[in-house]
Each structure stands twice: as C-alpha cells, then as structure tokens.
Design a binder for these strands. Structure first.
Lengths: 184, 184
DNA sequence: CATCGGGTGTCCGATTACGGACGGTAGATG
DNA sequence: CATCTACCGTCCGTAATCGGACACCCGATG
C-alpha cells in the first residue's frame, strides 16, 4: 500500500520541522513547512494535503494549546477531509481528549519516537484518502445502492420493512435489488 | 432541550455506580448498572441506551485499560450508534487518545467533577440521538436531496460539474432541483 | 382444522423520467 | 471585432419507472 503523501508541518520551531522531515522524508516526497498559523487557510486551500502536523503553541509564553485548537478549526473549515495530527510538549489528558473531540485524528507528545510518528502519519494519510474517496463517490446510484444495503441490514433482510424505510414501494425496491445485483 | 436519557453505567465498583447515580439521577430517569462486562452485548442489545459510561479496568490488578477497550469494541459492534464515555483513575495521554481513536466520545478521569460528568453525558446523549436520527433517515429522497446539496456545495454552485459528479445529466439535475426546492 | 397477519414475487396500464439537442449568455483570447 | 469554451435553461420523442393488485407462503392462534 502506497502511503506516500503530501504533508504540511506547522511549527514555529525549526528544529521540530527538521526532525519531522528527517523522520518522514524517506517515505513522503512532499513535506511543506509553515512557521506561522496566520496564513494557514491560504496554504491549506492551495494544496490538497494528505496530512497536517500541527503544533499547539505559537508564542513563547503559551502552553495551553488554544492557538493550535483555533488553527485546527480553521484548517478543518477550509478542508474538511484532511487529517490533522496535533503535537505538543505540554499535553494533558484533558487537552488530548479535547483535541480529538474537535476533530484531530491523533495527538503526539514531543519529543516523539520516530516509529510512532511514522505510524501516525501513515494512518492519517490513509484516513484522508478514504475521506476524499468517499466524498468523491457521490454519484446517485452508488449512494442509492449503499442506502439499500444499509436498510436491508437494519431490517435484517425483511424486504417489506426495508422498502418502507427507504420510502419505496416493494416493486420499486425489487427493481433496484435486481439492478444493483443485490438479489439473494 | 430535553436531554433525559437512558444510561448504562458499567463498573465493578459499587461506590462509583452510586456516585454516578447521585450526579445524574436528577436529570436522567433511567440509570442501569452492570458490574461485569461478560454480558455487555446482551445488555446493550436489549435496550436502546442513549449513553454508556464504561470503566476501563475490571480486575483488581489491571490498570492498562485493555478490558475497557475490548468492551468498547464489543459495545459498538452491538450498537454502532450509542455514545460511550470511558472512565478510569489511571489515564494517560496515550490511553485517552487511543480510547477516542477507537470510538469513545469522551474520556473522564476519576474522581470526576460532577458538573463535568453531567456535561459529558448530556453531550453524549445528544450525539447518540443525532446518530440514531440520521440512521433512521434513510428514505431515498432525503438522501438524494442531501447528496445534491453536498455536490452543489463542492462544485461551488456550478450545475454542470455537480451533475457530472452525481452521475446525472443536467436536465435530470434540474428536475431534482425543482422537485426538492433547491433552485436559486 | 380455518383464519389472520405479515411477508414474498410478479404483472401491466398509467405516469414519469430520460438525455440529446436547441438556443442563449459570459468571459477569455487573438 | 469574431471565435472559442464553458455554462445555463428548456424541450420532446423515447424509454423506464411507478404502485395497486394478484397469487402465494408461513407461522401463530383459537
């Protein structure tokens, strides 16, 4: 499985950016860096990143992670399908939980173990790709087929119940079962 | 907004169950308890709970949370729409992150603050209800309307692009826009 | 046993949906 | 200016879909 992706590392500490490149460049060809969250929306809108590594603090005295949380929201508003991994040296259980509840896909404490970072990024890239594929899979027939499969599963194979929940008559459902190759 | 829900507290410590009832019974009429995860699937299959509070350790020497993680998976396999809040006295950032990545909606450290527990449960009940409502909203027209709205948003109002991504001809899309009241 | 309720599979006259084609607009380009 | 490209809104001959109705089956019940 090819997990090479386009990554963005957002951190004002150049050593962190360097360490991340070192850990990830063997496997990922494109690793952009951004040291200031002020233009994060522009950057994210301009490139379909596969994963974003986002630090949580961007001012010397800040440790509460609120800047990273804010940036997370802005990133996801700009590109709802991208996976964001938050990074911090000052993590607590509460901050970690809050980050994930707000949509981060993972949370990495600094200093990280390289194999852990690699695994997290690989999973994030995979996640993003699945999300993009699903979002691109919008044709009416695919959605209809999936809905019918879901309704059948929920109705435990009862065709009458499934037809009702789908808002279809039974003959209409039979036609679709035949059309989509779902007949037993 | 009525947030009274059917709750299940899964913990082998009767003091925890008692404390949870005390904190939550003013607002929630049904609070079941289960002290052993062995029959968790049966319990969850028998009742449409709105939220489940799940301890992470069920044996005296166990602190790693693996029993709770296992139970979480089993609960979600049985009822994919229910919100599960994990609880433990031995939480770490890694355990918390792993819990949320596996599908828990929140993570509470013991001993908890009652207002925090209440808020978490209220959000979980709301979440579960939204999930159930969405799962029950399976009629073909609703799904089709939503798909069209999503495609229009992605295509930034470009009808030709939206029609193509939906697998429809432009006249077919126009008919649906008219049918669903989506014409500008 | 007969009856009821719930479900299955199919048919056919009526209705609706389909998409290629037409005519038009707007912006970019030489 | 003329041309091209991309998009918009609509039409109409053809094709497909619609759902009430029919016949049947199965399990539960009196």
């Amino acid at each position: 499985m090819d997990m090479s992706g386009a990554l963005l590392v957002v951190d004002d500490d150049v050593d962190v950016v360097r360490a991340a490149r070192l850990a990830l460049s063997l496997r990922h060809e494109k690793i952009d860096a951004l040291n200031d969250i002020g233009t994060i929306e522009l950057q994210v809108a301009a490139t379909n990143y596969d994963a974003i590594l986002l630090d949580m603090n961007f001012a010397a005295q800040r440790r509460d992670g609120s800047q990273g949380m804010d940036a997370l929201s802005r990133i996801l508003a700009t590109d709802p399908d991208v996976s964001v991994i938050l990074m911090t040296a000052f993590g607590s259980v509460n901050v970690a939980v809050e980050a994930l509840k707000r949509g981060a896909v993972d949370f990495i404490l600094k200093p990280w173990a390289n194999d852990k970072l690699e695994a997290s990024v690989a999973a994030a890239v995979d996640s993003t790709r699945r999300r993009r594929a699903a979002a691109g899979n919008l044709d009416i027939e695919t959605l209809e087929k999936k809905a019918i499969e879901a309704a059948l599963a929920r109705a435990k194979g009862n065709l009458s119940v499934a037809a009702t929940s789908l808002g279809l008559s039974r003959p209409a459902l039979y036609r679709r079962l035949s059309k989509y190759g779902l007949l037993p």
